[in-house]
Amino acid sequence: MYLSNKAQLFSLDIMLALVPLTIALGISANAMSGVVNQMQEYSDAYHMRRMAIDAADVIVKTAGTPEDWESNNSPSIVGLAVFDTASNRTEPNKLDINKIENMSGAYLADLLAGEFSYYNLSIYPINASADVSWFENVSWSGGSRADKKDIVVVERFAYLENGTNTTFVGVRLEVGR
């Protein structure tokens, strides 16, 4: 068989070899594109979760601004924790029953800064064995949950007392968009 001495860079063989290489690169590019989209979704979900967690932190661990907003003011930032005026300090994860009674959905919407088209905050007693008839579930919400693609739920725990009545409560914040 005759053998040519010319280079074979553009031969049929290399063209055939490029076929699987091109397929592999195509798959890689597609996968890369998918990863970018995936990372975008993760980033959005993370951002949403982060906001919900931070909002729940503010509600459970701070007394709000001003600290005595429940008595005579609308809060610029709402928080439900007890503020001990004697020691001048907030008691994190210890909720003030007066603040709960004065809480409203509008305050919650302000705290969430319009980031979510749906939100729901509920507080419910946990102690199954204790008598918690003095405190019933309370909730504040805005928007409709039905058509939301992404929903994030954050659940926290706190302590609540009203005179001699005490209970542990769950604080559940649900947001969606």
């Binding site: 459970v60 008691e91 994190p92 994860n93 210890k94 946990i126 102690n127 199954a128 064995s129 926290r156 725990f157 706190a158 302590y159 007392e161 005490t166 542990f168």
Partner: peptide, 28 residues
């Protein structure tokens, strides 16, 4: 962390009664 802080706020640790602490943990 929430459970520890809440129990501390509720003085749930101020007892030597281990069954009471266990009951609180079990409910939380």
């Amino acid at each position: 962390n929430d459970i520890l802080v809440s129990m501390s706020a509720g003085d749930a640790f101020d007892t030597a009664n281990s069954s009471a602490v266990n009951e609180t943990l079990g409910s939380l």
